[in-house]
Write a protein that binds this DNA or RNA. Structure first.
Length: 418
RNA sequence: GGGGGAAUGUCCCGAGUGGCAAAGGGGGCGGACUGUAAAUCCGCUGGCGUACGCCUUCGUAGGUUCGAGUCCUACUUCCCCCA
């Protein structure tokens, strides 16, 4: 497959910005894109109440599609989540209840509007829930209509299945059906919305191809697959895993300040790649930023943090986060914009064990962890390392009305009595 | 259908003789060095308690034992061989 010279704006941009891992029917897809006839979808499972940074690349792909004159469809996996994608999981996840799934979907929805323009126009994004058609399918009907198009022989060869088998982990029949459901999704979207492109992570390649082939076989319509490379940092870590767990996109689960910090802490070697993937900055500007020598690269990281935070949380939040970070890290002073935790004034009067306070403030996962952290010299009260996490923190520790609590150099919380 | 093996710290991989909170990696976190980077070196990496301590962990459920990850039985899942 030679993808050297795409003529469509969409694929050119996708390639230049590093989104493309694999494409099916590249020439045909390029033509459809050039003719602005792409209707592309990505499915999102509703296993959590928020997307995290790991899914951001998918959301950005829909954004690129819209920018290039295509129509994006966001598919919420209200139906598929009931089954569970076996991809790269060791064992089956506990099944979510329908209520949980619906609650998750409601929570997930809000984020997409930040990246896409929804509406009724030809290139406006739409959101659908695959429970709408999957729930209504009868088993026998499902088997007769779609089951005939899939051979077990092929399904066993797919990575998602093979991996589980190779690892000697059970794969239930329930999960085995996931890939069929995803194929049915694509077909259904083709019929309902003229959808002809499904995108996703490279782990979805097999699942997506199933849909492509189903559409081509059953409806004799063109359909394409496009997958992204699996994202990892330059040093090999999985994208989006940090101290406090996943980097959620919902503001109530991960503050704009933390989000800004996440991007600010990008490794040097990743800056250019991330700028291309996660911001709308022009490519020549990115080329300039990523080639900044030595410590100057920090300017590029700030730009990355600014742009990504603005896109998700808005300009005000981005600016506030940037200001708080600058104050804390570059000037070493406090800023009201730092994350704040409130404690009862009466409790503080009485004294709160430092380990408990650090834990309650979300700095550590447990009191024991806070103690160990303190012993290692990583716990600071008002910038002073505190090795005894058993000491009581009291009103005497207040400086200008707050207590600055830090775990390591980057996790800072202001404790404020109320 | 018969025979043999395997499942370990809920992030992963992986040692483990009846006394084990359980070797060693990776990852993660912290410290030093830097540029809020990488690499490197050092420390930490089940929960609770100020503390001698208590509680929970080795696929699941029982049993033997003063004591079980370690032995026995049944079950679940996986691998290999024979049919």
């Amino acid at each position: 497959m030679s993808d050297a010279a795409f003529k469509s704006e969409f694929l050119q941009a996708m390639q230049a910005r590093g989104y493309i891992h694999s494409i099916s029917h590249p020439v045909e897809l390029d033509e459809a894109a050039a003719a602005r006839k792409l209707v592309g979808y990505i499915g999102f499972d509703a296993t959590a109440a928020s997307l995290h940074v790991g899914s951001l690349i998918q959301v950005m792909m829909l954004r690129r599609l819209q920018q290039a004159g295509g129509k994006p469809i966001v598919v919420m996996g209200g139906g598929t989540t009931k089954v569970g994608d076996p991809s790269d999981k060791d064992t089956q996840r506990p099944l979510l209840t329908t209520e949980q799934i619906q609650a998750n979907i409601a929570s997930l929805k809000t984020v997409f509007a930040k990246f896409l323009t929804f509406g009724d126009g030809p290139t406006d994004a739409v959101m659908v829930d695959n429970a709408d058609w999957l729930d209504a399918l009868g088993y026998v009907e499902f088997l007769r209509e779609f089951g005939v198009h899939f051979t077990i022989n092929r399904m066993l060869a797919f990575d998602s299945v093979k991996l589980r088998l190779d690892r000697e982990q059970p794969l239930t029949f329930l999960e085995f059906n996931y890939m069929l459901m995803q194929a049915v999704d694509f077909l259904e979207l083709e019929r309902r919305h003229g959808c002809n492109l499904q995108m996703g992570g490279s782990d979805q390649w097999g699942n997506i191809l199933n849909g492509v082939e189903l559409i081509r076989r059953v409806d004799q319509k063109p359909a394409f697959a496009l997958t992204t490379p699996l994202l990892a940092t330059a040093s090999g870590a999985k994208m989006g895993k940090t101290v406090a767990g996943a980097v959620w996109l919902n503001a109530d689960m991960r503050s704009p300040y933390d989000y800004w910090q996440f991007w600010r802490n990008t490794e040097d070697a990743d800056v250019g790649r991330f700028l291309r993937l996660f911001t709308d900055l022009p490519l020549d500007e990115i080329a300039r930023l990523e080639s900044l020598p030595g410590a100057e690269i920090n300017a590029a990281k700030k730009r990355l943090a600014d742009e990504t935070t603005r896109m998700l949380h808005g300009a005000d939040a981005a600016e506030t986060a940037a200001r708080a970070a600058e104050a804390a890290f570059e000037q070493g002073r406090l800023s009201d914009d730092l994350p704040t935790v409130e404690v009862k004034a009466a409790d503080l009067e009485a004294g709160i064990v430092l380990a408990a306070l650090a834990h309650d403030a979300g700095l550590t996962g447990s009191r024991g962890e806070a103690r160990r952290l303190a012993q290692g010299g990583g716990l600071r009260v008002n910038d002073k390392a505190e090795t005894d996490a058993n000491r009581a923190v009291t009103t005497a520790d207040l400086v200008e009305g707050v207590i600055k609590l830090a775990a390591g150099k980057k996790k800072i919380v202001l404790v404020r009595p109320v």
